[in-house]
Every structure is written in structure tokens, then in C-alpha cells.
């Protein structure tokens, strides 16, 4: 499935640089970006902030039957990852051997293709790999 060009382009900060938001009022980080702080509401002061590029796996799954867009990549891992600032993110885990993907494994962010069809622009984004 080809994303609309502006939709992909608007997400560059989040997808390319793992940019989220930080509330100066309560100190909490958010990813994906928030327009309003859920803790402080109108008193909140949100600013853009790059999330840490490292974290650990808190849960994972090995996908063997995928959406047809990801058929070429099966089997692959998806995981819930807790970044070093406590923010939880859902991402694919690549370049990691079967015995390395486990709960508690330290992971680091990598830059990869998310979608590349014959026509249309290539969507790049973050994925993670087990730190070795």
C-alpha cells in the first residue's frame, strides 16, 4: 500500500530522527508527538525532543504470516521497546539472530526502508536491532 506523499513527509522528524515531544511543565517525554500534554493540559509547555536511540525489549513476537506488503520479510520480529527515558515504542527488530531476540535484550535504533514499491516514493523509518 502506497502512503500519500505528504503523510510520509510530515512524519520525517518522527521516523528519521525519533523526534517526540517533551513537556517542560511535568518533565514527561512522549512518542509519537503530542499536540497537548495529557498530564498538564493547557498549562503544559511542549517542545520537540529527540528520543534516546537505545532501549530494551519488553515484549516481542515473531511474525510468520504478515500483511502482504511485508511478505518478502517474513519471518520477522516486532517488539514493544522501552526506550531509556521510559517511553514505550512499537517497532520491527531486524539484523538480530533468533537467540538474541528476548525480553530484556538491549536494542539500538537503525535507519531502514519501511516501504518501497515499484512506483511512488520510498518510506524510510526507524527499526531496532539487538545491540551487539
Amino acid at each position: 500500500m502506497q502512503e500519500a506523499i505528504p503523510l510520509n513527509w510530515r512524519k520525517y522528524p518522527e521516523r528519521y530522527r525519533l523526534e517526540g515531544t517533551h513537556c517542560e511543565e511535568c518533565g514527561q517525554d512522549f512518542y509519537p508527538k503530542k499536540n497537548i500534554c495529557p498530564n498538564c493540559r493547557r498549562k503544559g509547555k511542549l517542545e520537540d525532543k529527540q528520543m534516546p536511540r537505545e532501549g530494551k525489549i519488553i515484549s516481542y513476537s515473531k511474525v510468520k504470516a504478515s500483511h502482504k506488503d511485508f511478505k518478502d520479510e517474513t519471518p520477522y520480529y516486532v517488539a514493544l521497546i522501552e526506550l531509556k527515558n521510559g517511553v514505550t515504542i512499537f517497532s520491527q527488530v531486524v539484523d538480530s539472530l533468533d537467540n538474541e531476540v528476548e525480553i530484556g535484550a538491549e536494542v539500538e535504533k537503525v535507519f531502514r526502508k519501511l516501504n518501497d514499491k515499484k512506483y511512488g516514493v520510498i518510506a524510510y523509518s526507524h527499526k531496532f536491532r539487538v545491540k551487539k
Binding site: 531486524v94 537503525v110 535507519f111 526502508k113 519501511l114 518501497d116 524510510y124
Partner: peptide, 16 residues
């Protein structure tokens, strides 16, 4: 290269 790697992703990783 893997399915999701190309010369741009490798360039970004080396630069980072």
C-alpha cells in the same frame, strides 16, 4: 543487503 537496506540506509548508519 537485506530487503529493507539500500545505499541510503547504509549511508545514514555510517554517518550517524
Amino acid at each position: 543487503r537485506n530487503h529493507d537496506e539500500d545505499s541510503a540506509t547504509l549511508a545514514v548508519e555510517a554517518s550517524r
